[in-house]
Design a protein around this nucleic acid. Sequence first.
DNA 1: CCGTCATTTCCATACCAATGGAACTATTCG
DNA 2: CGAATAGTTCCATTGGTATGGAAATGACGG
Lengths: 117, 117
Amino acid sequence: MEMTASSAVEALGALAQDHRLTLFRLLVQAGAQGMSAGAVAQQLGVPNSSLSFHLSHLTRAGLIRQRREGRSLIYTADYHAMNALVAYLLENCCGGAACDSDFPVNNHASRSEGKDC
Amino acid sequence: MEMTASSAVEALGALAQDHRLTLFRLLVQAGAQGMSAGAVAQQLGVPNSSLSFHLSHLTRAGLIRQRREGRSLIYTADYHAMNALVAYLLENCCGGAACDSDFPVNNHASRSEGKDC
DNA sequence: CCGTCATTTCCATACCAATGGAACTATTCG
DNA sequence: CGAATAGTTCCATTGGTATGGAAATGACGG
C-alpha cells in the first residue's frame, strides 16, 4: 500500500488516456470475475495490438492483474492499487484535510487521515 | 463539480509528471496564499520557461489558478477541482464501494457516495 | 518614458506515447 | 500432429510532450 511519488506518477499516467480509463472502468465493473482481452477489445472497438499495448501499460503501473484461463487471458482491476492511489492523492494533494473544505490548513506533515470525502 | 471522463483524463494527465505532481503538492502546501512562479521555479530547480509550460498545463486542466499580485503571478491549487477528480475516481474506478473493501460489488449506477476512505 | 524585474511566448530539439497490420507464441481440440 | 482460437510482440509511422535558451510582454519605481 506504500505509494511513492514516482509510482503515483506512473499510475496517473496509466489512467490518463481515454482508452485506458474506459478500459479500467470496464474492469472495475466486471469485478473479481474480470474480462478476457478479447471481450475488452470488442467493447472498446480497438484493434488487438493496440489494446494489448494499453493492457500492458496498466499492468506495468500495477493497476490491473492478469491470469490465464484456458486460452484466454483474463484481466481484473487491482482495487488495492487504486485505493493506494486515491489515498496518496487525498493525503498529498488535498492538504491532508477533508476534500470538501474550501481551503485546507497550510500543513505539511499532518497525520489527519482525511476521513470524510 | 461535474466531471466528465475526458476532463478526468485531462486532470490525470496534468498530474502524471514528476515536476507537475511536485509542483501541485507544493501549491497545496502553500494553501490559499499560493506561490509566485519564481518561488516555485526556485524550489523545483527548473528553468523558467519549462516551469511556465507545466504551469499552463495544470491551468488548462483546471487544477490550479492564477492571479496577479504586483509584478508577480501567484498560483494556487484549486481544491474543488482536485476534490472532483478524487470523487470521480471513487465513483467510477472503485466500483462505487468503499475503497478499503477487497472487491466491491459489480454495480454500475450506484449512488452510494463512498464515505469511508 | 526608461530600466529592471517577473514571467511568458517562441522556437528547435529530443524523446516518448499511440496506432494498427503482420508475424509469432501459446493453448485447446479433433 | 495440425487446424483453429486467443493474445502478444515486432515494427514503422505519426503525433504529442518535455526541455531550455533567447526574445517578447507586462508591471512598477525613479
